[in-house]
Design a protein around this nucleic acid. Sequence first.
DNA 1: CAGTGGTCTAGACCACATC
DNA 2: ATGTGGTCTAGACCACTGG
Lengths: 251, 251
Amino acid sequence: MPAMKPGAVSSPSPSFQPLYQQIKELLTQSLQHGEWHPGETIPSEIDLAARFQVSQGTVRKAIDELAAENILVRRQGKGTFVATHTEETASIFRFLRIRRCDGREEMPESRLLEVRRGKATAEVARALQMKPGEAVVVLIRVLDYSGEPIIYDEITLPSVLFKGLTKAKIDDYLGSMYSLFETQFGVRMIRADERLRAIAADAEVARELRVAPGTPLLSVERIAFTYGDRPVELRRGLCTTRQHCYVNQLS
Amino acid sequence: MPAMKPGAVSSPSPSFQPLYQQIKELLTQSLQHGEWHPGETIPSEIDLAARFQVSQGTVRKAIDELAAENILVRRQGKGTFVATHTEETASIFRFLRIRRCDGREEMPESRLLEVRRGKATAEVARALQMKPGEAVVVLIRVLDYSGEPIIYDEITLPSVLFKGLTKAKIDDYLGSMYSLFETQFGVRMIRADERLRAIAADAEVARELRVAPGTPLLSVERIAFTYGDRPVELRRGLCTTRQHCYVNQLS
DNA sequence: CAGTGGTCTAGACCACATC
DNA sequence: ATGTGGTCTAGACCACTGG
């Protein structure tokens, strides 16, 4: 069960994989299988080194990479924690890139309009790697910044993973959507791909965002992934950008 | 001249800085002062370790961070190179996030419309950390994807850093804008902040992009920085997003 | 104080590129 | 064969946290 050491490979170097990558894989599997839950600490580097029969430095390098991917969080003196969408604001803003233009940090309020059940269209099925016609849940909501409606959000989820998701359940929950998914359904969002466009507001959206139909809106399409690059959420946000904007860092 | 080792600090831990951070700082300064140029190799880890009187592992960690920031590029067996905006497509797409929606990778062609000299407005001065009224150069260009005009770009630069920038000089140059800045003016873009909005096309832009006035466009404002977080470029791109979009990865 | 992660070292060996 | 970066180890010590 322990990772095969590179030296043990007989042939010189066909598909060589470093030890720390193998450890990283094992850690990811433990996370995926729920051995440690979001917010909890994982065993110390020394313990993990003993478990996997490698040096502490090798475990360290594996954890370093997972920390760089925001899957684990290191805290000196305390331990290494499983990242969570719950808790403090810093981690919330990881997936929320819409800010006030003036730079003031402000958390939006979510207002759920509707929960609808339906079947995956061809497009949805492709994005979420489902079969066309499979059951999906669609959430429609509006995000208010300082009481003003700014984002019209449509969130599509595979029903299989979100059984028992109801409007009441969401309304009762305090915290972000991803926090809810994580705590109530065990679905943890690890990364996401986004595509941005400018579009004109249609009548329905214009009414909710209290703008004129035809107003340019920022369209943010997102596919969010859980462990193993499995897509588990399709989202389209339409955002008024008079006082707000989408921020991004290139490096 | 060598980095002060942490142990040498007398008091216990007021403002403790790890050795590898100090090495990183020294490497950054060498880059900034032009000791090594984009595309060139820097000395080997062993040589640098000898120069700074630290172990190879410490140099390694410093270089690792600079590589993670895309300032250096490691190539096993060959050496460590100063990152450049010239050369292959991979590094070009680091700062170019507008793609065809269908996923086909395609490089745009730049068509320079105008080079204008002027003075920094209050807003520009703030963004570029200049004094209002200081001289700036403004470039107006259009980017064509497959011959279709897609992006209307307005690029504002401090004249001090780009003396002798003329339309002819740009038209003659083959390669990206940042490649030109790097090779002709020694200004290297390290990172950038972007803000995205949706706006309506005005008459001027609509004509260049061959869309109806009022068409929603994606506005991408960018402030690009060189070493030491010095802002050296302000850019606003207006993009037609009928067949193109801005892609982003969250993690 | 003990336990955690963080730094630094020195040395061995591997993979890759080049001559 | 040589030199480069990449991996792995073992051990020492430092910084931070909490009992």
